[in-house]
Design a protein around this nucleic acid. Structure first.
Lengths: 191, 191
DNA sequence: GTGAACTGCAACAGGTCTGATGCGGATATG
DNA sequence: CATATCCGCATCAGACCTGTTGCAGTTCAC
């Protein structure tokens, strides 16, 4: 809980926070041990400005994780996981998530502190994911005996792998299609 | 190339190198930014001893990566990827690799310097992997139209995911079976 | 337009880490 | 057993990073 909006920030201050978080993502993704100075330089901001907004390094990182997790949760909910047909929801969610994860890869791989906002959001997302998988199973898209927790982990792993080489390369819909296809059919011969 | 065995080390020195590398793996896995002091303490060795064997932090890490990569290459070759029936080879290799990757998870996830020994070994391993997949495809275990490079990456991702929760928990053969099954069939309904 | 909020700059203190050195004592090896 | 090798310990200098403070100048917001 770095600084839970004690009072509404002025417009320029809000902008500072945004550019700092974006810079932190870029810099830390390349070198997780990078200094505040490097983050500040990338953000085009003085180091002291960072310390004014974030009490310390950890607070900055927690804010980064929370911010990214909120965007990810939004991306999932936008796919209407509870109402859309399972296969459609899976596709839409996958494409959305790939976009967000591509932009916030470091922040979203961060280990979450048990009680933190990021952790709560991640759990919420995981539940949504399980829900969709259950609906897919009910539609015979997934084997009845499948361990959905394992399926969900495989799904996460496929998402991660998809983003490894294509930072912003291919069409997100094409990547999403490959992920879903691999998840449901594997590499074996098609029917 | 930290110190490419200029001269054969004395038996106790060789042992020191081993315990240092093992400690480095354990400590850095938990905190990649851990200090040499912490590694030394875990190894039960003075910090100066580490500096005597490894010129600097980077040399230690490269040695760690090389050592782990050698063991991994051995684990792959032990599965007879060129001669055993593809499915058998895949099983054996997967079980072997899970063992080694479980013990050297940090070292094997390290980004490899382009020309380094570790990089060369990783490429060798990747080629072996592709070879096995080609043989599996020839046996109709894998779809004819499949992109084997993608299949290999999915395979790697499944291995990684398998090791996430079970540090040394379940039977490696059971984990291997699940990995292969998921790779070839995905989560969809069984035939 | 006025005041509060925000920023950059400079400087400081405190801490941690690295890599090096020298020495006395222990240990392996032939 | 003789000696080259190895280790632990104490110590050092240098570098880097963090978090803080004060001030002067700019910018938003009412």
């Amino acid at each position: 809980m770095g600084q839970t909006a004690v009072r509404t920030l002025r417009a320029d201050a809000e902008r500072s926070v945004r550019v700092i978080l974006e810079a932190a993502e870029r810099v830390l993704a390349e070198d997780p041990g990078a200094s505040m100075e490097q983050i500040a330089a990338t953000a085009g901001v003085a180091r002291t400005t960072i310390h004014r907004r974030f009490a310390n390094r950890q607070a900055l990182i927690e804010a980064l994780a929370s911010s990214a997790a909120r965007q990810l949760a939004q991306a999932v909910d936008d796919g209407r996981p509870d109402t859309a047909p399972p296969l459609v929801a899976m596709h839409r969610i996958t494409a959305n998530v790939l976009q967000v994860k591509g932009a916030w890869a470091f922040a979203l791989e961060l280990p979450t502190e048990p009680g933190s906002e990021a952790a709560v959001l991640q759990q919420h997302i995981a539940r949504r994911c399980i829900t969709v998988l259950e609906r897919a199973r009910a539609d015979k898209l997934i084997d009845e005996a499948a361990d959905l927790d394992w399926v969900r982990r495989v799904y996460y792993a496929l998402l991660r792998e998809s983003l490894q080489d294509d930072p912003a390369g291919a069409d997100p819909d094409a990547l999403a299609a490959r992920v879903i296809d691999t998840l449901l059919q594997g590499a074996g011969p098609r029917a």
